[in-house]
Amino acid sequence: MKNILKIEKLEKIYGLRGNVYKALDGVNFDVYEGEFLGIMGPSGAGKSTLLNIISTIDKPTSGSVVINGQNIVNMKKNELSKFRRDKLGFVFQEYNLLDTLTVKENIALPLSLANVSYREINRRVKEVSNNLEIVDILDKFPYEISGGQRQRAAAARAIIADPALILADEPTGALDSRSSETLLSTLKNINENMNVTVLMVTHDPFAASYCKRILFIKDGRIFNEIVKGEDERKKFFTRILDVLAVLEGDIGNVI
């Protein structure tokens, strides 16, 4: 299987001299094509730092991050913009669509930025919106459509440029349970049916149960890893809770 993301000896240190704080302390892992990887951990464990570095928004102190064969650590700012545009897709929890643009224009944005011809843009938008069942609302504005439709539109935008990897940062954080479910099934859908690789950071065990594999991090290190395998989602959910109990129990002991 093709390696999409390879992280080696990743370290991120905040602060200067005496007063240092290690947000990431030697993290190693790989993500392969078609995976749906979850990253979980308590607050302050380093989840967001990790995601920011993979998103190319932040730089690590040391270590390497190879996405689709390219090491992003040494890239220049403009190269990074281009890289984000071509290789990464994002699903945000909020402000995920631009209010002033129609759904179609929103979805087309990454391709427009990459200077793709209009014919190609049109073709891709049709294809993606067919898959996500949002063809009817393409000419509407975000405020005219339902929450679930908005999420599907956002997902469509994330995958339209055919990115190597889709990053989702706490995508269900601000959503009610129904909307969470729609979003998660959308992610699952694009992962399974369109073979898109997804990396999701979350602290919500319900959301995590949609993943195929979960990494737990704590104090900047990988603490545990579980794979869904042939399990039912419900069973996987209880396994996640078990690991979390250990994680939090640990914290409980310290306190």
Binding site: K77, R85, F90, F92, Y95, D99, L113
Partner: peptide, 16 residues
């Protein structure tokens, strides 16, 4: 501001 930040995440470089 938020809109521009979003564009930046989508891969619009600073110059653009």
């Amino acid at each position: 501001k938020k809109n521009y930040q979003m564009l930046s995440k989508l891969g619009a470089d600073d110059r653009l």
